[in-house]
Design a protein around this nucleic acid. Structure first.
Lengths: 209, 209, 209, 209
DNA sequence: CATGAATGAGTATTCATTCAT
DNA sequence: CATGAATGAATACTCATTCAT
């Protein structure tokens, strides 16, 4: 039993090892230019081993997103369960949650956004795709619930709470991707955090009666 | 002289022919699955001919963006020059401009967003990259100017107009990309337009004193 | 340990397998007409496998030469270490060594001469180029030493021994290449051996006081 | 008539223009890496024009050799017709002729040697090949005659005069090619002329009774 | 489980050559 | 004759994936 558990833990550790390596390589080279061998080398294992833990390159790529989506979910649950907050404070708390996710691992988050807008999505196995779907929907549901509450208390404007959640998420991802690409195009300094602050302020202001 | 001009026009027509074909193929298959041969076939030319007009696959892909960025610029110039608008109306006009761009060619616009967040950007020839940069900056500048005006007239909140332009653009691209990916994940109906409407309303509300 | 060694041996065998196939194909079709697929087929492996063992086509081609240069070196060392020979006999022995090299593999030797006078040389990896350089210089040095000795004993005319070695080698390669091209131009019978005999006799006579 | 002649002259000039360009490009890049477009650009004409004057790339390459072989022939005829020379002096004169050919255009001469030992030879049109054959044989015949005379006067050793001519030519080309490749391998200074001097001295000494 | 050599389908790109103008 | 845009066959090389050890 103890042995079994140790093996389990080792297996998980190996998985993480690969994920960490994959994250680095995908971030540095992009999905297409990154090779499985690159990743294997970074993880200090052989290429074949990756295929024991991940079905193929697409699924490895998608797996990065699973992890951060799980994280997001947990973090959002937290916000939802903070009962002592008023609606405005809850938006602030939501904002903090997204910040945390970004800080937790910017590269993986950007990977997630890339995934969302990429051809990879079309090639995933049904299982993985539905897991991503479930996690996404769950996160959006929580956000939607929060907005819903604010609407029902009359603090927020009357709007479809799902739409608000979508817009909140779109604003978050849009700002991150755009600031990221400005870095590449202009070699400019990174204004992500202040820009996000302004963006969320405008949003909060915009949905508040 | 007449001959020279005609040839010039024919060359440009051939270029457009290739761009149109490339757009179709890239949109249908994604960057990687699309082959140069596919594109050549669609354009009813030989593969080699593409390379007379475009240095390589990356540049062909990027060239799709140039066209839509030019359109965007022209459209934004228009908005800027409409002197009879108040600040709120100008935001509405800005919104219409972005709508038009989306309607003009949704697929190419999504390509543009992909490009901005992609490895392709790193492999472009300096000339093409700087053209993209120039056009992007020019568009952002116009938006920034519009916000600037609203700030100085006291209609909008005091904020960095560049940041507002960035956020406006990020919101636009974020909503489009997110609705696009929801289509893939959920097979859901397309709520793009209404969502964009709400998003821009919130934004307008959020930056208005 | 035993396993590791066996694998090592198998890898070397595979390398040889490829080299042998490459030699046949290059000799039959020439560098350009020979395709990597031809070679793979001849070696009964897949095209990709060649690239595990050789960086590219140029390096594969050059590798053929390494083998014969090594042979040449060993053979020349032999001649050098034969202490019971007088100077004239040593020249004869030198001649025999070059004959042997030619007999060992005429096609590869001709490949080597082609290589020396070709564009390929400019595209080799530094490692391979320096190995070729090292082996060439080593062979030349041995020949030079032999001539040097004959000069110091007063048997040969006073001349720069390096130049004599260069000329000896140039005569050898010149005759082989010229007879080879005569075969193509004239479809003539092969007079290589007798011509080489006369050439070396003249050379010997020419450097003997 | 005058017009016809002028056209003829202009045609020939254009041909030379192409040959000069081809020589430069082939020498700089080698046969394979040199493109017809490179040559056209160097000659300041369009690629299509080359095909008016030369059947294809192989023939263009071979045409370079024709010119120098013609030159060689003329020069050797000269030597043959110098009646006031003894046999030794005639060898010296032969040597001078080859020197002159080299000086006239080293690059084309090296091209000729490359051609002789290349796959191109196999792809030439029968007409061009037979012209090269005729010129080569003619040159060798003259050399052979000279050696023949020396043999019959008892000055040179008894040997097949054709073989002597072959060896003389092989020595010449071998030294040039070997010194050329040493330049590439070692980046060494060019010792061509002194080495050739020694080589011919040895040869002369070697065939003199 | 881990390995890493082998696979081989897949494709971007090149370039000699042609031919309508 | 000259052009140069168009051709399209030809191929080196890559890399995700497999599988015997």
């Amino acid at each position: 039993m103890g042995i079994k558990e140790r093996k389990e833990r080792e297996k998980e550790r190996r998985r993480q090892q690969i994920i960490v390596a994959a994250k680095r390589i995908f971030s540095a080279k992009g999905f297409n230019k990154a090779t499985m061998e690159d990743i294997a080398e970074e993880a200090e294992i052989s290429p074949g081993t990756i295929y024991i833990y991940f079905k193929n390159k697409d699924e490895l790529y998608a797996s990065l997103s699973i992890r951060i989506l799980q994280h997001l979910n947990i973090r959002l649950e937290h916000v939802k369960n903070q009962n002592n907050l008023n609606d405005e404070q809850r938006i602030a708390s939501l904002k903090d949650a997204l910040y945390d996710i970004y800080d937790f691992d910017p590269l993986i988050l950007i990977n997630l956004f890339h995934l969302q807008s990429s051809e990879s999505l079309k090639n995933l196995s049904p299982g993985l795709l539905s897991e991503i779907k479930r996690l996404s929907q769950s996160s959006l549901k929580i956000m939607s619930d929060i907005f819903s509450e604010g609407i029902s208390t009359g603090v927020f404007i009357k709007a479809n709470p799902n739409a608000l959640a979508d817009i909140f998420w779109a604003l978050f991802s849009g700002v991150i991707l755009w600031e990221e690409s400005k870095k590449i195009i202009d070699n400019k300094k990174d204004f992500l955090k202040p820009t996000l602050d302004i963006a969320f302020d405008i949003f909060r202001q915009g949905i508040t009666k």
